[in-house]
Structure formats: structure tokens, C-alpha cells
């Protein structure tokens, strides 16, 4: 009975958490037109721009370095196996398809999650502790519109861009590997890679990156909004924001990859 209760409790908590995420997501979606320039509320797009710089521009160097490393590792690992069959040229397929479909979006999501997801939780958590969120509510200003939505809009624009950058850097790292091992020139390499990847590989990758962006922003902000108490609660919220969004990103990745696999069987 006790175990049943515990399981039931866990399920209810998980469902109410998901429900909260969906409600928050819905409020953000409804508020998002007000963040756009010209049609939106004055000055609000500037907040979104600042967030884009924080998530995208500031995150780019890290994404570039990690993608180059990951691309090189992928090429070396697959190369060491494929070489035994005299099929080293397939490294180009592995890197090209691997990055556009999977590694680019996932790596980007995980890095943004660690860099910006924790920052969202900490920022909003601190605003909860210092009553800034309460102050907004008492001024008849919706904190979701003012604080969360610019972050969401910024993430929806920058995370796919970062994913494209990650794909590019990963594939270029593969080119370096191929040049060192087989002296294939960059133009040959690129021609080969472009032949092997299809548009739908890139598009499913980008679609996944949009889903990851939604998860990272919503979980990060939600953890911040759940902060009650003091500085230690802010710290915990940053940790649980990163842990939960990483977990949900990988879960969503598995789910959507399975769907794409089933849809694109032929």
C-alpha cells in the first residue's frame, strides 16, 4: 500500500509539473506577439534582443569549440572501425548525417541548457526571493509576458541558429580529419557530404532544436518561479533546472527520433 501510494504520489506530481509547464507555455505563446518589434509593446523587443545576445552570441564560441571536438571525435571513432573494411570514405556520411540529424541539435541543446537554462532559473529565482515578481503582479504586469516571453522568443530564434552553426563546425572538423588521413580536399569533401545528407535530415534536426528550446526555457523559468525561501533555494533551482531540462531534452529526443524513424521508414 505504501509503495502504491508513493508511486501514485510520484505520478500525480509528475503530471501536475507537466501540466504547469504546458500552462506556462500557453501563456508565453499568447504573449509572444507583444515581444515582436513594431506590432509589440514598446521596448519589449529590446529585452528579447538582449536575451538573444546572451543565449546566442555569447554561447557561440563554446558551441563552436565543442562541435569541432565532437566532429573530430566522431570522425576518428568511426574512422578507426571503417578503415578496417577499407570504407574510410563513409566517415563523411557518418559525420554529415550524424551531426545534422542528431549531434548538432542535441549538443547545442545541452550546452544552452547548462549555460542559459541555469541562468534563467537563477535570475527568476532571485526575483522571486526579492519579491520582484510579486511587485510586478501588484502593478498589474504579467511576469510571464515581461520576463519569460522575451526569453522564449529569443531561444526559439537563437537555438536553431546555434544548431546550424554546430552542424557546420562539426562537419568542418570531419573535413580536417579526412584531409589528414586521405588528403581529400575541402571542396571534394563538401560535395560528398552534401550528396549524402538530405534536406529532411537538416529539417528534422532543426525541428528538434525548436522542441529543445521550448523545454529549456520553460523548465528553467518554471524552476525559478517555484523558488520559495532564500539563497539556497535559488541555488537548488538552478541545479534542478539544468537536471530536469537535460533529462526532458533527452527524453524528447528519443521520442521524436522514434517518430521520425517510423514516419521515414522507406
Amino acid at each position: 500500500m505504501n509503495m502504491l501510494e508513493a508511486i501514485g504520489d510520484g505520478v500525480i506530481q509528475g503530471l501536475s509539473y507537466l501540466g504547469g509547464l504546458v500552462m506556462q507555455f500557453w501563456s508565453e505563446l499568447r504573449a509572444s506577439p507583444r515581444v515582436l518589434p513594431v506590432v509589440g509593446k514598446r521596448g519589449r523587443w529590446k529585452t528579447a534582443m538582449r536575451q538573444m545576445v546572451a543565449i546566442g552570441v555569447d554561447g557561440l564560441p563554446l558551441i563552436a569549440i565543442m562541435s569541432v571536438c565532437a566532429g573530430f571525435i566522431l570522425a576518428m571513432q568511426s574512422g578507426s572501425e571503417l578503415r578496417r573494411f577499407g570504407a574510410l570514405q563513409y566517415v563523411m556520411d557518418v559525420v554529415g548525417i550524424g551531426f545534422t540529424r542528431e549531434i548538432g541539435p542535441l549538443l547545442t541543446a545541452l550546452i544552452v541548457c547548462g549555460r542559459s537554462g541555469s541562468a534563467f532559473s537563477a535570475e527568476i529565482g532571485t526575483m522571486m526571493v526579492t519579491s520582484e515578481i510579486d511587485a510586478m503582479k501588484t502593478m498589474a504586469i504579467d511576469p510571464i509576458e515581461l520576463v519569460l516571453t522575451p526569453k522564449y522568443v529569443a531561444a526559439m530564434i537563437t537555438i536553431p541558429c546555434l544548431t546550424i552553426m554546430s552542424n557546420t563546425f562539426g562537419i568542418l572538423a570531419g573535413a580536417v580529419f579526412m584531409y589528414i588521413t586521405t588528403k581529400i580536399s575541402l571542396s571534394m569533401y563538401l560535395r560528398y557530404v552534401f550528396n549524402s545528407i538530405e534536406l529532411h535530415d537538416v529539417l528534422t534536426g532543426l525541428l528538434k532544436s525548436l522542441i529543445f528550446a521550448t523545454i529549456i526555457v520553460n523548465v528553467g523559468c518554471m524552476e525559478g518561479l517555484r523558488v520559495r525561501g532564500g539563497a539556497d533555494a535559488v541555488g537548488r533551482s538552478a541545479t534542478s533546472g539544468v537536471v530536469r531540462s537535460t533529462y526532458l531534452v533527452i527524453l524528447a529526443d528519443a521520442f521524436f527520433t522514434a517518430i521520425f524513424y517510423l514516419v521515414h521508414k522507406d
Binding site: S131, T138, A140
Partner: peptide, 15 residues
């Protein structure tokens, strides 16, 4: 809420 102003204990200014 527009007709009501609140000054919080911690001031709650936007940092």
C-alpha cells in the same frame, strides 16, 4: 491593481 500601490518590505526594486 492599477489603483493600488504596494511598497514591499524588501523594497523589491528591479535590480
Amino acid at each position: 491593481r492599477c489603483a493600488m500601490g504596494v511598497a514591499f518590505q524588501e523594497a523589491a526594486l528591479f535590480n
